Simulated scan of single mutants.
Amino acid sequence: MALVVRLTLGCPPFRVHAGDCRDTAKRCAPLSAEEARQALAEGVPACPHCRSAGLPQ
């Protein structure tokens, strides 16, 4: 499953999403599983809508 992180121009990453999340937008970029784990470890929160679908909490 592809993972993406929502990006807002000029701002740090906002949330980590599962690739099939309904809350993703055009401002998302693909991440590898390792990059997603790193973002979560650095404090970027998992999306509240899709984290139960396989993202660590």
Rank of each mutant, 00 (worst) to 15 (best):
F14C: 10
A53Y: 11
A53L: 14
L3Y: 15
L40K: 06
D20L: 00
G19K: 13
G19S: 12
C11K: 15
E34N: 06
A18F: 05
P45S: 03
A53K: 12
A2G: 00
H17Q: 05
V4E: 03
R51K: 09
G43M: 02
G43F: 02
C47P: 05
P56H: 01
C28P: 00
A29Y: 04
S32L: 10
K26C: 00
P30A: 08
R37T: 04
A36D: 03
P12L: 14
L9I: 10
A33G: 07
Q57K: 05
A39L: 13
D23C: 11
L31Y: 00
A29C: 01
G19E: 13
C21R: 06
E42T: 00
C21N: 12
A29F: 05
R37Q: 08
V16K: 08
E34L: 10
D20T: 06
T24R: 13
M1S: 13
V16L: 15
C50E: 08
A53H: 14
C11F: 11
A53Q: 13
D20P: 02
V16E: 15
A33D: 09
P48Q: 14
G19P: 13
L55K: 13
G10E: 14
A29T: 02
R15E: 02
C50S: 10
A39P: 01
P12T: 11
A46K: 04
A18H: 14
C50M: 12
L9R: 12
C47T: 10
A41H: 02
E42S: 06
G19Q: 08
V4D: 03
C11A: 15
P45V: 03
H49T: 12
A25E: 09
C11R: 15
C50R: 08
P12I: 15
Q38F: 06
A29D: 01
P13Q: 13
C28E: 06
G10C: 15
E34R: 12
A36F: 06
Q57I: 03
C28I: 02
C21I: 09
V4Y: 02
C47E: 04
P48R: 15
D20I: 05
C11W: 14
P48G: 12
A25I: 09
L7G: 00
C47Y: 07
A41T: 01
L9K: 06
M1F: 10
R27S: 06
S52F: 08
V44F: 02
P13M: 15
A2H: 05
R22C: 11
Q57A: 10
M1A: 13
V5W: 02
P30M: 05
Q38T: 12
P56N: 01
V5L: 03
L31V: 00
V16R: 13
A41Y: 00
L31H: 01
V5Q: 01
D23G: 01
M1P: 09
S32F: 07
Q38E: 14
A41S: 07
C11S: 15
F14R: 13
P56K: 06
A41I: 00
L55P: 15
R15L: 14
C28D: 07
M1C: 10
D23Q: 09
R6G: 03
A25M: 07
T24M: 11
R6T: 05
F14I: 08
F14T: 11
A36N: 07
